[in-house]
Design a binder for these strands. Structure first.
Lengths: 275, 275
DNA sequence: GCCGGCGATACCGCAGGGGTATAGATGACG
DNA sequence: CGTCATCTATACCCCTGCGGTATCGCCGGC
């Protein structure tokens, strides 16, 4: 199966519409129809149920969509990592904006002191994006936070575990409490995080993209946030943190593609585990 | 990057010779040279150092070889799993021939009793092959044995942990001992297992492909073997097992691709963990 | 019953992948 | 040092197959 066929199929499967998929791919609709038919013939399997109002995935189509996305990411990763290797030694580390800032700073300092240290390009992104970057080769290593981020398929080492706290603007009714339980948050409008596809769930809370942005909203009195205790370290005067004693513990882990065995990556991981 | 280009590059990188790679690919040598040149131009990176006596990998080439193999496996997996889904529900389980036989039998029995059980196709193979089958989609789930098999990149659940024993033909000098230590094996010729590429290391012991074959050689008095205790269960009268008290513990795990979320697979894993 | 939207079919043009023949480069060898 | 063997690159040709345009057939909505 060729990458092109797979890209075409994934586009149709995601758009559930040949015309829109063709537009997204920058080709006309008829060649796309033909390509999908050929793919189905070669696989010997129906992938799509066509109706006059669009297309639906068959079971085999759903499997090919899931596996095909992973395969396309792997191909992209091969290309990106080869290109980056040619451009010179270096690592791309990705972390959530605003999360584990102190740990990240210590890690970068400690690694830079290593004799064989290479350039580390730090990418900050919103939650749930790191996994994708690691899979498609835009990043080599990531700081993830269990249980929020999926670590499936990566090698990981645990770096730190901490509790969570509610971060409130000073003057908020709950800000005088010594500690809180999740039940106390029943009628608090918590911020809404985007799904992986970028859409936001419905609800009363503000829409946020990353933790740094959220912290600013809290400071402005426009949001309250549940964040790991370490977010406390750069707290503005007008923000209060109250421990949430029964919130799940958050573990910061360093994660990398399971097959990676480069020397700089191994050094970075070793430094991280010895912090 | 197209699958075809990647296949071509991997062939040349593995053969380190354009002519042989072309033959393996079933094409002539000149188009292959051209294809690699185009790939290098598109990537903007030299992948191979050509000499008149063959080719050597550059650093970027080595990265592309490793990542490219994984990517090609992922593409194959997408194709195979889509095809198998179309052919009907079913799981392919792979295990080492002769290993964990009792546990495997119990697992298959227990799963078959499930209300939503699907066909389970059991593939037996030599050591180190399961990982490959799981990666390229020929299998859905595997029984692996830590620390011998690599579980990197898979989701796993532990099923059993056991010690190892030395399996000897009756009458062997060591067969009367109540227990052994690894130091006692210093001048015993242990069997040689093939590398992933099929080549055998040099040494005095017999060449073996799988545990079932090894057991037969022991029974014939042509080999001695270090195997997990459970290999004892179908022991012939003429074979003696002596515990190796300081050998590493062997953990049997059930492993599957990290992103797999099919109902039959989840059922099988649940049944396995409750054995 | 007509219209609009969607996927499939028919047909054409050309980019590019594959083939053969051969040149160019370089280490091996007498 | 010249010749040969070996291996990759270049030149040139052919034809497959991808992509484009025009149009058809089908079906749901009004």
């Amino acid at each position: 199966m060729e990458t092109r066929e797979l890209r075409y199929f994934v586009a149709v499967a995601e758009e559930r519409h040949f015309g829109r998929a063709a537009e997204r791919l920058g080709i006309a609709q008829p060649p796309l129809s033909r390509a999908i038919q050929q793919l189905e013939r070669r696989l010997g399997a129906r992938l799509l149920d066509r109706t006059t109002r669009g297309v639906a995935l068959t079971e085999a189509g759903a499997v090919l969509l899931a596996e095909g996305r992973a395969a396309l990411d792997a191909v992209d990763a091969a290309e990106r990592r080869a290109r980056r290797t040619h451009d010179g030694p270096g690592l791309v580390l990705v972390s959530k904006a605003g999360a584990s800032e102190e740990l990240l700073a210590k890690l970068l300092d400690a690694y830079a002191a290593e004799p064989a240290a290479v350039d580390v390009d730090v990418q900050l992104c919103g939650p749930g994006q790191q996994e994708r970057l690691l899979r498609d080769g835009r990043a080599d290593v990531a700081l993830l936070h269990r249980p929020f981020d999926a670590t499936a398929g990566f090698d990981t080492e645990e770096l730190a575990t901490e509790g969570q706290a509610l971060f409130l603007p000073a003057g908020h009714p709950l800000s005088t409490r010594a500690e809180l339980r999740t039940a106390d948050l029943a009628d608090v409008a918590l911020p809404r995080w985007p799904h992986p596809d970028g859409a936001y769930p419905d609800g009363p809370g503000p829409e946020v993209r990353d933790t740094a942005q959220l912290r600013q909203l809290v400071s402005l009195g426009r949001a309250v946030a549940v964040l790991p205790d370490s977010a406390r370290h750069a707290l503005a005067d007008d923000v209060v943190a109250v421990p949430l004693v029964d919130a799940p513990l958050v573990t910061t882990v360093i994660a990398w593609p399971a097959h990676s065995r480069s020397r700089p990556l191994a050094d970075l991981v070793r430094v991280a585990t010895r912090l």
